[in-house]
Design a protein around this nucleic acid. Structure first.
Lengths: 251, 251
DNA sequence: TATTCCGATAGTGAC
DNA sequence: GTCACTATCGGAATGAG
């Protein structure tokens, strides 16, 4: 479903649990977490604030509309999204370990000028390995240091800064952010310039495989060291069990 | 063979008759006529001046190099191309009649700044209906009134004009002609603007079919009139025979 | 900054 | 203004009741 208001339709549901399991991942009193229909990484979720009094659909249209509404209410909404996101992040980390044998970065943040209506917090893994990641706009919109992707922690920090700084950041003008999406392609991890998308995608695969190899070796060393020690903590058993299940990992 | 010097290799052959019949259409002491390897119309030939003393390959590289060499020799070369082209044109006209039942325009002219080396006079039919005509550059380069396509008769007339005019025209600077190739698409025949190449190509087909219909009706009326007359000339028999053979005509 | 489809545009490599 | 290949860029439609 490629409709521009599909997220809003989810967010205004009185009974989100009636959504198909292929769409809904988790929900609370205040938030829904759905699978991104076109995931740009191995893990990619969206956390949506539910529409409920005193929050209306207009206020929750996007980050800009939220930030220009009541500041305390806005912060509360973001905190609720953050709470839900932290839980989702933990579930992703467990899944990383059980399915791929290691853990890698998870990013949480907003797009300044989204096309789809209704505020959505992206939670995605840093591999950016996905068939759905097809063009420069896709990639640059998630590049963690380019300027387009607004990390949740940064957005929350705006509330603690000077009100004039908050006002400035809250503008979120399309013309201020659009240029980032046209920046030259470069690996977010090593900084190397990439000629085109196929080259970038191949490189991202390599980066992720390299990280997998190094992390798995590190974990193996750690395990060997711990096995050579006389005592063990209760958590170790789980960790070893998770590590032994390798699943459909590519790296 | 899409090589940039293939025409020169033909033109410097001592025995052009050894060229494959799929390449060589006709030849004289001074000229070769070859099939355009990527015809942009139903009929599309190239007439090449043969390389022979005192003409060298450099002088015959393109129209600009020829025109800036000895003026009388240049005119002689163009006259030889013209003579050969007139013969080829007559053969095309006969083929039009025998295969398609009517005749339509045939254009003869040069491109000001060709990529392929060796002067070549284009002879092509005005339908511009061909799978090989794929983009705006192709089309605009043969548009008969845009300015890029240099009609042979016009080029020959430069020799009769004031020497300063000849000098001006002989410049043939790429930058003076390149803009024509980017002009908006418009039908050369009716002037209508065309949104894109598929629309233009469909329209060109329509134009040609319309012309075929009208010309065939005109010819049929003429024949009926002549049949109603008591006398006939010896040529009429041939013409009727040609008209009756309809061949693989599309229109 | 939703995707997908279509088409134009740009760079390259060819031997 | 050689072609053919790859990739990018640019606009338009898109669904649902």
């Amino acid at each position: 479903m490629a409709h521009l208001t599909v997220l809003r339709s989810y967010a205004q549901r009185g009974r989100p649990e009636t959504l198909p399991a292929s769409i809904l991942f988790n929900h609370t009193e205040t938030c829904l977490t759905v699978y991104d229909a076109f995931p740009k990484a191995i893990f990619h979720f969206l956390v949506l604030p539910r529409i409920r009094p005193p929050l209306d659909a207009e206020e929750l249209t996007n980050l800009r509309t939220l930030l220009k509404s009541d500041k305390k209410r806005a912060r509360a909404v973001l905190k609720e999204l953050s709470n839900e996101a932290e839980g989702v992040k933990k579930m992703i980390q467990e899944e990383m370990l059980s399915r791929y044998g290691f853990q890698w970065e998870i990013w949480m943040g907003f797009h300044p000028v989204p096309s789809m209506q209704h505020l959505h917090l992206h939670i995605l893994s840093s591999d950016l390995c996905s068939e759905k990641l097809k063009n420069k706009k896709h990639y640059n919109s998630f590049h963690p240091a380019l300027g387009f992707f607004l990390h949740l922690s940064d957005v929350l920090s705006w509330f603690e800064a000077d009100p004039s700084f908050f006002e400035m950041k809250s503008q979120l003008k399309a013309r201020d952010y659009e240029p980032f999406l046209k920046d030259d392609l470069a690996c977010w991890k090593c900084g190397r310039a990439m000629k085109n998308m196929p080259a970038l995608k191949a490189h991202l695969q390599t980066e992720w495989r390299d990280e997998a190899r190094k992390e798995k070796a590190r974990i193996a060393r750690k395990r060997k060291f711990e096995e050579s020690q006389p005592s063990s903590s209760p958590g170790d058993g789980e960790e070893r069990a998770a590590l032994s299940a390798d699943g459909p990992a590519k790296p």
